[in-house]
Write a protein that binds this DNA or RNA. Structure first.
Lengths: 130, 130
DNA sequence: GTCGTAGTACGAAATCCATCGTACAAATAG
DNA sequence: CTATTTGTACGATGGATTTCGTACTACGAC
């Protein structure tokens, strides 16, 4: 797997703040596998993350999801999602932001993410907390 | 889980042969969970089964798939698919037939199966054998 | 500089999962 | 009846996966 990893702060000649924004390694579009995408989405915690990202339509930092698991477990799940091509992540300061690779997924597997998101809003989804 | 299990040979008053056809227990439409469907489809062997069923558009008996795993493993995968609402199975004689619950899935999660099947036909799917 | 925040990395534990072999059951063919 | 076919059930095994705690790093605020 030859993944792409680069520093956005280097590519943009004038970073807005003195902090650089660094994108994390992720698979190329062609390397995304269906089975892995399905398997990655088949976990309740990760599906929850994806739903939150789809709802916000904006990058979210990891702490903003309110996941009911520990920090290390969160890190693990975000990593799985990123390594399987579902989200992109970049660091900015102490925070790590995630966003859906919606366009990439749509190009690679048309309609798949939309169908999954629609399905994940069906009733019968127990939600912890309020 | 109150699954439905009945003997078709009892429901039809005149079975064609002396052998009855018995449907195996499967979850009700409302009980099918997205995460479980995704997880079930996230296995290469099971995705292969589903693709074969979609291609044939007819019930297939378990031996007709040419899976590269042992018989016990096949049984396991068919069971997972059935218990998660993706296929229906019925026994007839010594054979066990499987068919996609396409209409059920379409009703419960519109577009999902179609998107998965379309995605599973993308290039980059190594196929063992020929 | 120190402190707090945000998150990683590592290692461990528990559980799950895919796989198999063997033994078995049911139906059909002879 | 026996033999064959089709597939299950059980038990075991090895490898993933999920989860966590602890220690650590990097950044920003003060």
């Amino acid at each position: 797997m030859r993944w792409l990893s680069y520093d956005v702060g280097v590519l943009t000649d004038q970073p807005r703040r003195r902090s650089s924004s660094k994108a994390l390694a992720q698979p190329d579009l062609r390397e995304i596998r269906v089975e892995q995408v399905l398997r990655a989405l088949g976990d309740p915690v990760r599906l929850d993350i994806v739903r939150s990202l789809a709802r916000s339509e904006q990058p979210m930092h990891c702490g903003a999801f309110g996941l009911a698991v520990s920090k290390s477990t969160s890190t693990h799940h975000f990593k799985v999602l990123r390594e399987n091509g579902i989200i992109a992540q970049y660091e900015q300061g102490t925070a790590r932001y995630s966003e859906l690779r919606g366009a990439d997924l749509e190009q690679r597997f048309p309609g798949l993410l939309a169908a999954v998101l629609a399905a994940a809003q069906e009733p019968g989804h127990p939600h912890r907390g309020t």
